[in-house]
């Protein structure tokens, strides 16, 4: 199933709170020949309730997998958490027959049965394995030469490697390679694969904000003009929470945070308004000016 046709699993956060990610991803995917089939009837991937009930997480994810199995389509996601959860559950249900039987008993209630016939990929994973770097290279019309950015993969794009396994969790290279295809420089910085802090913001916001703050400091120190993310949760921390973090620690960052499809879209020749750049909380006009003059 590598004909670039996927079930599009949006997850809970993106379609309500991070529309700029969805808008830019849809534009870029269409241009690259990726066909998205809307996933009717999906529910939460399960990850947010894993702390409360592992069994419920598995049941929720399994139902989503069944929806894709019925359409005989692999799943593509924009969220690293959704991808890792659907992959993990697919794996564990294939390996553990007893668990699969139990979950299938639950699913029987809704006339479903998990079979294990589809894969889930975060779009960066799909870009690497299904689309290929050459296709992306061919799509670049306005290289972003001279622009210096940094990447933040997000924990669940990389870890746990028993579920991901297609990039190095200590020195991730795939997103960096993709960014460099746009013509921008992707700079290394301290503690690059560390967490954004999102998962604990409702438990202890000061600890979470400190995690985000340190990442922003390291990215600025490296001299990056923007940070590039591939997860709605990471983006909420770096972009939406940035002003609050600046106030809380009395420290200025003013670091634009772009979704990778926005950066790629600019290099493909889309206008900033087509990619919803105006929806970003941290004003990206400085980097748009920099791109114009190159």
């Amino acid at each position: 199933m590598s004909d670039l046709r996927y079930m599009f699993f949006l997850g809970c956060t993106i379609p309500y709170r991070v529309l700029s990610y969805e808008i830019s991803a849809r534009k870029v995917f269409a241009k690259l020949g990726i066909e998205l089939v809307e996933m009717s009837d999906f529910n939460c991937c399960g990850l947010p309730v894993d702390p409360a009930s592992h069994e419920m997480m598995i049941a929720l994810a399994a139902r989503n997998l069944c929806l894709a199995e019925q359409q005989e389509l692999d799943i593509i996601t924009l969220c690293t958490g959704c991808a890792v959860t659907l992959r993990k559950v697919n794996k564990v249900l294939k390996e553990d027959k007893e668990l699969r039987n139990r979950i299938n008993e639950y699913l029987k209630e809704v006339d479903m049965e998990f079979k294990g016939t589809v894969e889930t990929k975060h779009f960066i994973h799909a870009f690497k394995e299904d689309l290929g770097f050459d296709k992306i290279k061919e799509s670049i019309k306005k290289p972003l030469a001279g622009l210096k950015v940094a990447e933040h993969c997000g924990c669940h794009l990389l870890r746990p490697t028993t579920v991901t396994g297609w990039d190095d969790p200590e020195d991730p290279a795939v997103l960096k390679g993709l960014i460099e295809l746009t013509g921008a420089d992707c700079l290394d910085y301290m503690d690059e694969p560390e967490c954004c802090g999102y998962t604990i913001i409702a438990i202890d916001d000061k600890v979470a904000m400190q995690l985000t703050r340190e990442k922003l400091q390291h990215v600025k120190m490296a001299g990056a003009q923007a940070l590039i993310t591939v997860c709605p949760s990471c983006h909420l921390m770096y972009d939406m929470q940035q002003a609050r973090i600046e106030r809380f620690f009395n420290e200025k960052f003013e670091l634009p945070v772009l979704h990778f499809p926005q950066l790629l879209g600019l290099a493909m020749g889309f206008r900033p308004d087509e990619l919803a750049l105006k929806d970003l909380r941290v004003n990206p006009s400085k980097i748009l000016e920099a791109i114009k003059t190159t």
Partner: peptide, 10 residues
């Protein structure tokens, strides 16, 4: 307070 980053596990 675990942020589920999986660094430790790796």
């Amino acid at each position: 307070l675990c942020c589920s980053c999986y660094n430790c596990q790796e």
